[in-house]
Design a protein around this nucleic acid. Structure first.
Length: 822
DNA sequence: AGAATCTGTCATGCC
DNA sequence: TTGGCATGACAGATT
């Protein structure tokens, strides 16, 4: 009877606590371990798992759902608050449901004895029920419970003397805890607590150690099962990701060729892909599409998402995706029919979508529809689901949390998939791009009303892709220090080129996305080169620049490696005019000399093509990590004036009348070189000179390669550092949000705790003294009113009790004894 | 003139 | 053992 007085309050408290626990479980599975639970929730040694739910369900499935708010206004408000917390809604979509078990004739005695038992369930998104009242008890346990109930019912309530006698008399004969080694003191303690009408939240039978061990074993088994399931899911995801990457890699290889030296991906000039041709020949508009895709997504509001889906998704595309129209929310389907199939102009569609939005019951409903739609999409690793758009349920906005530099991987994955898919279609790629990303289309004037004429640099890019762009032109239009990657979609993109400077950091990623995720590094690498080429990118066909343009260190490195190839593969073919002239004594021209054909990183077959398309990096290797490389000093393009050993060697070669150039000596394979040494009668001095020349030449190339590698390492580390800094910032932000939510929940918990505790009354109708009692929750979610003496015992024994479950159990017994003594 | 940078060379270790 | 590569260190050239 008294318990009925505060049952709902307890339920509320239990739910609240359970929510905390549920959330923690979501954060990390380690939380499930009892030891961790103890750390987080406090010791559970004094707590006893309840088993109302399963016991009653297994024997008396007469529970009826009951809204808790019906019986407690405060809880009602709280319940609503909890449900409306974005913290919960965003992460778990947790629903809170409580069941009040209604008694029947079969268990009315039970109710009389323990008050109204309650079971609390927190139902998760995946329909997994977290039962707050205990685990799945084995059938025997339930039977045991029933027996215990009946047995205890024989004991008159509130009759201490009779109870003592009864227990004393029946403790051996009718031991309610078969297999239990509880001492008489333990049993006495339990009964004293009963008589005090202190709700232990459990029946006496749960003191059965054997039963509790079984429960714990079962719990561990479930945990293991869950972990295995997660593992298999992870493997499945990895497998899918791998397949997707392989496909993308295949596509990339069909259309690109990797520069053996720089690792950059160079487009095949005669590649078979129509999509690439599309990108190139129709370049300006489509590259703009990619860029604006990222820009648009960045500030994608929910309204915009709905608008996009409702106005622009083509049924043809849906067919391609093998999506049944049935799975599309009806309102979307209607809109699709109206706008796409019937061909409503997009501007009109936009208005209609606005009306549509206004006709929705709520933004939330719209969102659910969207989520359903996206979740049914067969492209499983479609990472562009709205979940990743940082949807704020409170505002309906896709928040700017989705920083391009952090989530772009996911977005570009989405983009890549579609691009890849489109490349296989018969239709012109442009049409499909418009179908897939209509908001990127230049026709989507209602959304992105930019002016193509202002995007001249992209035209320049297209030109560059065709190999015709001088290295300086592109970046004169692109300020390179645009570190800010967030872009507000409200920025009118047609204003000026300045708008696109903000996009610059995303530029490489977007283009990388055009290729494939697996090629992302390669393309990004090359585009990083674009990005960092402050001193002018090196398109290595810089022979045309040697006179008119200054060249940097990068130039020199690239020239020596990219231009050369390996001209001596067939021996001393180097008496070719080019080589000879390059290495003539008068022309110790480092910018033209072909000395680095031995570069192991390059693909000799493609060297010439690579040289035309290669984009050099700004490898200012003295720049400390994290620091923007300062402008590369431009060396005068004049002929090297110094009279280094190279020219001296050439002169000595002539003096010795050795009919080979320095390049011949350096570049020839070992076999050929040895044959030359043998075939000519050379003096020791001549041989020594030739060997020295070869050794120095080889070492020079090695040094150049070594320096390039060093620069690359530094650049990569710098990039990595930037990424890590961004990741750190993101995590810090997340932590701050979580702490904020936690604080909020703690506050609510405090209020609720106070409310419930003040509502409790003892058998005399007096409130419990907060100094003597406290409410605590077990690891199973049960809420107990625990005398402070037990707390003190618990804390005094905490160091030894928390080490293992076994010691916890031992400590339970000792505490019970102590409490009994008191 | 001096600092910063680039580049070739040497020495050394490793394969 | 030899040749080649990688790399630190150094010095001269260049800006």
């Amino acid at each position: 009877m008294i318990k009925e007085y505060f049952t709902d309050g307890l339920i509320g408290l239990a739910i609240l606590l359970s929510i905390f626990r549920t959330d923690l479980v979501g954060i990390n599975n380690l939380i499930n371990y009892p030891e961790v639970q103890e750390i987080i929730l406090g010791q559970t040694v004094a707590y006893l798992p309840a088993s109302y739910n399963h016991i009653i369900n297994s024997h008396h499935p007469f529970e009826s759902s009951k809204h808790l708010e019906l019986s407690n206004e405060a809880f009602s408000a709280w319940h609503l608050n909890i449900n409306n917390l974005p913290f919960l809604r965003e992460r778990h979509r947790t629903e809170i449901e409580a069941f009040l078990v209604s008694g029947t004739q079969q268990n009315v005695e039970f109710e009389n004895f323990t008050g109204t038992p309650t079971t609390l369930n927190v139902e998760h998104e995946d329909n997994q029920i977290v039962d707050l009242s205990g685990q799945n008890l084995p059938e025997e346990s339930a039977s045991s419970y029933s027996e215990a109930t009946i047995s205890n019912d024989n004991v008159p309530e509130s009759s201490e003397d009779t109870l003592q006698t009864a227990i004393a008399d029946t403790s051996i004969v009718n031991n309610p805890f078969p297999g239990c080694n509880l001492t008489k003191e333990d049993l006495d303690l339990i009964d004293v607590l009963w008589q005090q009408d202190v709700d232990l939240g459990v029946g006496k039978e749960v003191f059965d150690l054997f039963l509790r061990q079984e429960i714990e074993t079962k719990k561990e088994q479930e945990l293991l099962k869950h972990q295995e399931w997660e593992k298999s899911q992870l493997q499945l995801r990895e497998k899918q990701e791998k397949e997707r990457q392989e496909e993308a890699e295949k596509w990339l290889k069909e259309n690109f060729r990797r520069d053996g030296e720089t690792g950059e991906w160079i487009r095949n000039s005669n590649g078979p892909s129509s999509s690439l041709d599309y990108f190139e020949t129709d370049a300006s508009a489509e590259n703009i599409l990619i860029l604006n895709y990222t820009a648009y997504i960045d500030s994608f509001t929910l309204e915009a998402a709905l608008d996009y889906l409702s106005t622009n998704i083509d049924h043809a595309l849906i067919k391609n995706l093998d999506i049944s129209p049935d799975i599309i929310p009806s309102y979307l389907s209607d809109q699709l029919t109206d706008n796409c199939l019937i061909g409503t102009p997009e501007s009109q569609g936009f208005q209609q979508s606005q009306q549509l939005l206004s006709h929705q019951d709520s933004l939330e409903e719209s969102l659910n529809g969207l989520l359903d739609f996206l979740s049914n999409e067969p492209v499983e690793d479609n990472s562009a689901s709205l979940d990743q758009f940082g949807i704020d349920l409170n505002t309906g906005n896709l928040t700017s949390d989705m920083k391009l530099d952090q989530d772009l991987d996911a977005q570009t994955d989405y983009l890549i998939q579609n691009v890849t898919m489109q490349s296989q279609e018969i239709q012109p790629v442009a049409n499909e791009m418009n179908a897939t990303f209509p908001f990127l289309s230049t026709n989507s004037s209602n959304q992105m009303n930019f002016d193509l004429d202002s995007l001249s640099f992209l035209n320049s890019l297209a030109t560059m892709q065709n190999g015709g762009l001088d290295d300086g032109e592109l970046f004169e239009n692109i300020p390179v220090d645009s570190n800010e990657t967030l872009l507000n979609a409200n920025i009118p993109l047609n204003e000026s080129m300045d708008t696109f400077t903000v996009l610059h950091d995303n530029f490489s990623q977007s283009l990388g996305a055009m290729a494939s995720p697996s090629s992302y590094d390669g393309l990004c690498d090359s585009l990083d080169g674009l990005e960092g080429a402050i001193g002018g990118s090196d398109l290595s066909a810089s022979s045309q620049n040697n006179i008119t343009r200054p060249y940097s260190k990068v130039n020199r490195l690239s020239e020596s490696s990219n231009d050369s190839g390996y001209p001596f593969q067939s021996g001393f073919s180097s008496s070719s005019p080019a080589s000879s002239s390059a290495s003539s004594p008068a022309g110790c021209n480092y910018s033209n000399i072909s000395t680095s054909g031995n570069d192991t990183e390059q693909d000799p077959q493609n060297t010439q093509t690579v040289a035309r398309h290669a984009v050099a990096h700004n490898h200012t290797y003295n720049t400390p990590p994290g620091q923007v490389p300062r402008e590369v000093k431009k060396y005068a393009p004049k002929e090297p004036s110094r009279k280094g050993p190279h020219s001296r060697d050439q002169r000595r070669l002539e003096e010795f009348k050795i009919p080979y150039t320095i390049d011949d000596i350096i570049e020839s394979p070992v076999e050929t070189f040895n044959e030359i040494l043998k075939s000519h009668k050379l003096s020791e001095a001549q041989l020594s000179l030739i060997r020295d020349i070869r050794r120095r030449g080889k070492n020079k190339i090695a040094a150049q390669n070594c320096r390039k590698r060093k620069v690359n390492v530094i650049v990569n580390l710098s990039d990595e550092m930037v990424d890590l800094e961004k990741a750190r910032d993101k995590l810090l932000k997340e932590r701050a949000e979580i702490e904020k939510e936690t604080l909020k929940m703690k506050e609510k918990f405090g209020h609720l705790y106070t409310h419930i505790f003040q509502s409790l009354r003892d058998e005399h109708g007096q409130p419990y003294d907060p100094n003597l009692y406290s409410l605590q929750q077990t690891s199973d979610g049960d809420v107990l009113l625990v005398p402070q003496s037990m707390n003190r015992n618990k804390y005094s024994n905490s160091s030894s009790a928390s080490s293992s479950p076994t010691s916890s159990k031992d400590s339970v017994n000792s505490k019970k004894r102590k409490s009994f003594d008191e």
